[in-house]
Structures are given as C-alpha cells and as structure tokens.
Nucleic acid binder design. Structure first.
Lengths: 194, 194
DNA sequence: GATAGTTGCATCAATAGAGTCGCAAATTGT
DNA sequence: ACAATTTGCGACTCTATTGATGCAACTATC
C-alpha cells in the first residue's frame, strides 16, 4: 500500500491536497447551508463536481470524512493539554483554547459527532469521559462550586465553547480567557436569586 | 372574510386545528432531521401528504408558517414579563422562564429566525433590542459586572437559553432559576485566572 | 336526510440531485 | 520530451421529492 517511488509519493501528496481543499470547501458551504448540493461544494472548492465524486464515493462518504477529520483534530486538541497531569484550571484553559482553534474552522464538521460512525462516536465518548474526569478534579480542588450539578456545569461549558466559536471577534486565547472567566465567575456581581 | 354562520365557524375551527397539528408534527420531525420530506411530516401528523399541500402551498410556505408561529409565541413570552417596567433581575427571570416554555416545544421553528421573512426578522430585531435595554438596565442597577462586554454577556445568555431548552430534565421555572444563577455567578468558587 | 367542507387515495408531471462514464487537456515528475 | 496521473467537461441514468388533480368517502351542521 505504501508508495515505492518518489513519483508516486508526489502524486499522492497532490491528491491529498485536493481532498483537503474539498473538505475545507465543504465545511464552508455546509456550515451556511447543511442541505447544499455537491455542485455547490465543488464550486466552492474550485473543482468540478465529478472530481468530488472521484475522491468521495458518495455524499455520505464526504460527510463522514469531514466528521472523521474534525474528530481527529478535536482529540489532538484535548491531548495537547495533558488534562490528566496538568492542574485542573490550567488544563481547562488549555483545552478551551485548543478546542476553540479547531472549532472556529470546523464548526459544522464537529457538529456531526452524533451522526458519525462508530469509530468517531467512540473517540467523542472518550473525550467526554476525560472532560468529566477533569471537572471532577476541578471540583475536588475547590475550583468548581459543590452545589452545582456537574452535568449541568459541563453542558454550560460546551454551550460557551459553541458560542465563543461563533463570535470570531478575537483570537482563540483571548476567547478562551474570557470564556473560562465567564464560566467560573458568571457575568453578575455576586447577588443571588435565592 | 369573517365567518357569518355558526356552521362556517365550526368548519374553520376544524381547519385551524389541522393546521396546528401539522405545524406541531413538522416541528417534531424537522427538529430531528431538517431535511425530512413532506411525506415524513404528513405521516407524523397522521394525515395524507396531499392534505399538507392543501394547507400549505409549498414546503417553504410551511416552514415560513412555523417561523411565523414561533415568532409570535416568542414575542408574547417576552411581552408577558414586562421587561420595561419590572426590576431587571425579576424581568430576566420571567423572560427566561417564559421563553424556555416556548423554546422547549418550538426549538426548530425558533432557529428559523435568521432565514425568516422581513416581518419575523423585524420582530426578532425588536426583541433583541429590548433584551439589550434590559441588560443595560441590569448593568446600571449593579446586577451585572461592569467589566464584562455587554454583547458577550447577552451572547452567553442566549447560549444558556439554548442549552437549557435542550436539557428537558426539569420544568421551565427550575431551568430558569438554575440558568440565571449560572449566568450571574458562574460555576466556579470565585477564583480568577487573572 | 341533504349539504358543504374536508380528507384519503391513486396518479400524474416536473424537477433536482446523486452517481457514473469516456475522452481530451493539463499537470507533474523523470 | 515522455509517461503517469489527475482534472474538467459533457452527457447520461436513476431516484427521491415536490406539487397538482380528480374522485369517492367521511363528518358535522342544519
């Protein structure tokens, strides 16, 4: 399966570049209109529709490839923060910044997690679990309030990630700092309803 | 245009009931799969596909009707809280609870705001503006932190509304209480990164 | 029971999109 | 310059979906 000559390697590298161009175009088009046609995706990628069909056997295959690609980047983003060994607050910040970097460019593809195949679903479940462990650690370290439902806290965190990824009014680090600050302290002055 | 006999009134009332049944079914089906066919919607509504086409000239017309319906309910939910005259914190809680009640049942239809017609877009812009005024009032009253970007605060609020509407693990009032508490105080113990 | 309105069903045409194929032209490495 | 590969283009089939229509059956009201 591996290339044996430099020629083959160069050509394969070109192919992969085309594939990546199509994936990026698909992300751009489908994030605006999930029902867009292959024609529109091909046009955005600057290639003919037939070329897209040559690279991806079907529409589903293309979408699956997007999910797979985004999932890989997602897992890398979490791994890079070493959430198991880093202090919880630092890990939270690092993960946030890294994930935002991915999600800003692959928003649609990342929303495919639920629809994705067994492979990708497993990776997502794994990440979910690591996030859960991180939140438990943070709670035990006194970073998170003990009177807040952990599941809700994580949901809030995901919602803020999603929101921050939409508002591209700053770089990932700035967004992450603001996000974590909001997550932990809220936007109020400390008064409570209850 | 108005009915003149009791007979006509009764029949029209039946028609409107059918229309409403279809709208509800469309919400249920399209929230799971935005690309669902008219056939699937009709089946979910328990009517023939032709009946749906009799009530709504086209697919777009059906979707527009959903957007219009949800927009009306949305506006009512905000109005009922009297955000202009009620103290900010109370208004915030009331609006949250009312909007959640609508959004839990009309999640898909409410996401159509951006795609909707001029009419609906105007109503949404109006609500947006009233929300902005409410947040300004809340800030001036010392409820909201002055060092937080107001636009970001509102975005966070919308994100939490969206998230809370997805998690149907409690009634609207409970969700609203938790949401506002999280919005104002966050999920942390008060430590800051900076 | 007569009537007006609504619905279900079968069927039709029109359309858009997915997927396939062959061939000429362009690209790229050697 | 040559060979391998990829691409664009045009044409094609096939299928799903939309939207329209005529007719018989049903329902509620009078």
């Amino acid at each position: 399966m591996k290339e044996t000559t430099t020629s083959t390697r160069a050509l394969r590298s070109d192919s992969e570049r085309t594939v990546h161009t199509i994936l990026e175009a698909a992300e751009r088009v489908l994030s605006r209109n999930p029902a867009a046609s292959m024609e529109q995706i091909a046009e955005a990628a600057g290639v003919a529709r037939t070329t897209v069909h040559r690279r991806f056997a079907s529409r589903d295959a293309l979408v699956a490839a997007m999910a797979s690609w985004a999932t890989r980047r997602f897992a890398e983003a979490v791994d890079a923060a070493h959430p198991e060994t880093t202090p919880p607050l630092v890990a939270l910040y690092q993960i946030t910044a890294n994930v935002l970097r991915v999600k800003i460019d692959w928003s649609f593809a990342m929303s495919l997690a639920l629809t994705a195949d067994r492979e990708a679903a497993h990776v997502h479940a794994d990440i979910e679990e690591r996030c859960e462990r991180l939140f438990v650690k943070a709670r035990e370290a006194g970073v998170l309030r003990a009177d807040v439902d952990p599941a809700w806290a994580r949901r809030v965190y995901y919602a803020l990630i999603h929101e921050a990824a939409q508002s591209r009014d700053a770089d990932a680090d700035t967004l992450a700092a603001r996000l974590v600050d909001t997550l932990l302290r809220g936007v109020g002055t400390g008064q409570s309803l209850t």
